[in-house]
Nucleic acid binder design. Sequence first.
DNA 1: TTCGAGCATATTGTACACAATATGAGTCTC
DNA 2: GAGACTCATATTGTGTACAATATGCTCGAA
Lengths: 235, 235
Amino acid sequence: MPVSGGKVQAEKPESPEAEIYNKIHRAIAERRLLPGSRLVEDQLAEVFGVSRMRIRWVLQSLARDKVVTLHRNRGATVAKPTVKEAKEVFAARRLIEGALAREVVRATDDKALKRLKAHIKKEIASEKSHDRAMELRTSHDFHTLLAEIVGNSVLVDFLQELMARSALITAIFERPDISVCSHFTHSKLIELIENRDEQGLVDAMLGHLNEIESYLSLYEKDEQPVDIKTIFADL
Amino acid sequence: MPVSGGKVQAEKPESPEAEIYNKIHRAIAERRLLPGSRLVEDQLAEVFGVSRMRIRWVLQSLARDKVVTLHRNRGATVAKPTVKEAKEVFAARRLIEGALAREVVRATDDKALKRLKAHIKKEIASEKSHDRAMELRTSHDFHTLLAEIVGNSVLVDFLQELMARSALITAIFERPDISVCSHFTHSKLIELIENRDEQGLVDAMLGHLNEIESYLSLYEKDEQPVDIKTIFADL
DNA sequence: TTCGAGCATATTGTACACAATATGAGTCTC
DNA sequence: GAGACTCATATTGTGTACAATATGCTCGAA
């Protein structure tokens, strides 16, 4: 029973597993399921009206994408990234999205530009609607859209994974006092693309990512997954 | 039963699944199992002396790492990348490894340099031994080693996936007349790292990747996974 | 001989029952 | 009352039996 969509959010439910996968994945990405929440197999099986085996399969897939964590004999929880992990994800994003920016300028044609502009409209609409879930999703989709424009499905997959993890990270480390209004920044990026300003776009993208990261409070909060054994290894 | 090692080739067998995963993964990466080979669950179960369920989990894990393809109701085969996929993997590698090169120069200290030089020794040894499998592995490990030096586990994971896929791609599209002797090129890269020549390293890395790709015959060979439906869609 | 239908076989897909495990509550002792 | 021990319960882990499916073969008819 392959979760046929893989990590990609397929529009049409190719297999029942893929559908469940998407539902849970979205619930997590849109923060209806918060980091640390337990995901009990029986409960999910009942909710989705399928057998436990199916759920286990889906949980396995989600774990692969690092949005849930499996604890041997103790079940699954929504992943709770550490500060270290958060920093690594952002570093990876800067590296990949920075390099991607150059390619985007090269790859963008009229059709692509249309898609980009259409996307901004969606972002504005979701910000107006005050639907936080959709707001987050469209904002994240902008970043994967760039990979799509470059036309490299390997990179699309990577970006998709990074964005899902970013969603979790934001959920944990977001400072309540700041709200990121991204459509404006994204519009500026599109402008640079339209002007074929390669270096400008790269810089702006890196700036954008740094800004997002700076809006987080990336220091250890509560009893994060600290590994006791490691801490007392030298005693 | 999480395949605890994930896609990382763990040294110590944390769980029986992880061990099986590693064995199959290595068999594929080292080309003892060639693209297209069928992987029948019962057979594998018998070989490894475990139940079929265990094998299914492992196959699922391998599928998500794109080294195995699952066909609904028809079982698993070793993945057989298409030309398109091959080109995308190499494009992704250029993008990521190119950008990584800059970071490597920054991140390399004495300890890292030692690791790099030790690795070269390994490469030379395996080339001498004429053990094609080990030769391939050490050569590929060099590239993930760079990510390790930068110290970003997210990138290490990406690189590992890309290298596994590259192994498959090479297996399919390699031209029999050319043998890549990589340790020499890799040594030159290390030299550039030692000299802190950022731009030089980036260029050399891109050159290296282009060279590898150019040694492949990236045109459609036999009856690659062509989708009949798509081809005759307009009839 | 060619085509198709139906059957045989090999293989994968799924559910279920039970085993293993972790955790917390309750109990007993000192 | 503090600590350790046992047991109850909730939950996950695993093997097995059986159902579903795909594929190739056989056989019969045109």
